[in-house]
């Protein structure tokens, strides 16, 4: 059992590698359909969710709050798929959405632009210049998205366990040696790892519940879970009625899998 996350630029062979690995290891495969699942859950179109994952935020981002909701929702959907301990994920932002989890092999696949242009020309019948322009635009938007949302450079190799260049390597060859790595102890999904995935799942559900409610959506809150005990930290306005704290606790308590809620929130006066 293991979890694999594949991040790649458009037309870099990521889907082929993910399918090869899922087939070879007999693991479930999850890709862009995660956006459809999230869209359905929110009663919006897939394009609406995709838009917030693809369009890079600007400094003055009018849609920051709703973008955050969708990102948290996609992360929560992804967390639900970890329950069996087997998954090949090749959707968006896996390297940041699954950050900090054990036994996840985070791979980045890169390919020369010329190779990707050729693939796009053949698959979509584009001219060379249109294909080149498209790839560079998509790459730049994704890089900006990761930078704005997480403050990281998408090409930073330390975000991944491995960066694989398919300029000279075939997809079956890449698939072959990754499978060897996945069988090693650091990627084994033990009972302890499964329990950490369970904690992550509960924390993601609580985060989603908090961003789904208008009173708590804009608050910079962090959520951690351990064996059903959820700790919410961050900062929130201190209202005379004390309602904010009560609402955070009530929302969190209403989430499946939560047994106890602990607040470590720093309260501030919104009207000093």
């Amino acid at each position: 059992m293991a979890i694999v996350s594949i991040c790649r630029g458009s037309k870099s062979g990521g889907q082929a590698l993910a399918e090869c690995l899922a087939d070879y290891l007999d693991y479930p495969l999850l890709g862009r359909e995660i956006l459809q699942t999230t869209a359905t859950a929110f009663g919006v179109s897939e394009e609406e969710v995709t838009h917030h994952f693809h369009r890079s935020p600007t400094v003055w981002d009018r849609h920051a709050a709703i973008r955050r909701v969708y990102v948290v929702a996609v992360q929560a959907t992804l967390a639900e798929h970890l329950s069996t301990g087997n998954l090949v994920y090749h959707g968006l932002a896996g390297q940041v959405l699954l950050r900090g989890l054990p036994s996840v092999m985070r791979i980045r696949l890169i390919a020369p632009v010329e190779m990707r242009v050729r693939v796009l020309m053949e698959s979509d019948g584009m001219t060379r210049s249109a294909a080149d322009q498209h790839i560079r635009t998509v790459d730049a938007a994704r890089a900006r998205w990761v930078k704005m949302m997480y403050g990281e450079h998408i090409e930073d190799p330390t975000l991944y366990d491995m960066v694989i260049n398919v300029a000279t390597m075939s997809i079956p060859t890449a698939c072959d040696f990754i499978a060897v790595g996945l069988q090693q102890p650091e990627f084994a999904v033990t009972d302890d790892v499964l329990s950490q995935f369970g904690d992550f799942r509960v924390a993601c559900r609580v985060k989603l519940a908090l961003v789904s409610e208008s009173e708590t959506r804009g608050l910079p809150l962090e959520v951690k879970a351990h064996a059903g005990v959820v700790t919410v930290s961050g900062s929130a306005p201190m209202l005379a009625t004390g309602e904010t704290g009560d609402r955070i606790a009530a929302i969190a308590r209403g989430v499946r899998g939560v047994k106890e809620v602990r607040l470590k929130v720093q309260w501030f006066d919104p009207y000093p």
Binding site: R108, I110, P157, M162, V163, I164, N165, M169
Partner: peptide, 11 residues
Amino acid sequence: TDTSLYELTIN
């Protein structure tokens, strides 16, 4: 540090 100079970068 450009990863395209290598076939494989391992962390």
